[in-house]
Amino acid sequence: MSLQVNDLRVYYRTLKGDVKALDGVSFSMEDGEILGLAGESGCGKTTLGKSLIRMDGRMRHMGGTVELDGRELPIGDDRRMNDFRFREVSLIPQYSMSAMNPTRKIGRMVRELLRSRGATLDLDELESRLSLVELPHAVLDRYPIELSGGMKQRMVMVISTLLDPSLLIADEVTSALDVSTQKAVARALIGFRDAGFVKSMIFVTHDLALTSHIADTIMVMYAGKLAEKAPATAIVKKPRHPYTKLLLDSLPEVGVRYTEKRLAGIAGSPPSLLDPPAGCRFRSRCPIAGEECVQEPPMAEIEPNHFVACWKA
């Protein structure tokens, strides 16, 4: 068991009250697993990713534990968490295009970063990893501005995984890229896992189609809670949660002309997380909601490794 998250609660402190962005999330990941984390904007997927490595100033750890390789991560303690960052947990941020200091040559920046973490730079290893993502070794002598968007993205991937972390969080890494580059990035991420640079990976995205290609398991979140977690094929072929079904229905399919058939979409919008409704949070938008949905549905394993939080599943 590589990662074990138990009833994790992370709230945003605001003047109006706590925004319950993560409200009791539990799941586990195996070694070598790539977990796709999907859901619409504001469902808490980025919050979950951030909680595992570095919370920003407005986030508060309200409860629950995170265990990585049998050790508890002190996620609420910014200073103690520093020992784990980069070495155990690492991040490929959403903003890879601007993640590198614009006024340092990349090679020098990497060396300074590693030295500040008490690690020495293994130049051969770095160069072989650059080759793996098809970057010329000369990029180390360049400034970030001299690289294209795709090159910066790959460079950040290499930097983030240099210390062979156990868990890598890839936060919306493909959203800023065009489709052909997306595929290359996804392939590189799988390559990193296969080469053992990272043990397991959480791939945060709103792109279900891409996730299903690279993830072993897909986890769908809705309004700060888990909706469904299952092997990638099961999610795509046999989704059980009504939200997952609607999410898949709103994706365009290859070969279908949408002049005749309108894409479904999901009516309504997610509830406010400032004061979420009791019971199932998808209730108000759910086409099959019934009386029992006033009670909160527990996460149930309806098939091996297929978890759903829905009374009707």
């Binding site: 968490m81 020992d83 993640a99 983030s160």
Partner: peptide
């Protein structure tokens, strides 16, 4: 800025 956040996420010390 983004590069500061990235460095902090990788646990770089405040000094750097």
């Amino acid at each position: 800025s983004d590069y500061s956040n990235y460095l902090a996420a990788l646990g770089a010390p405040q000094r750097l």
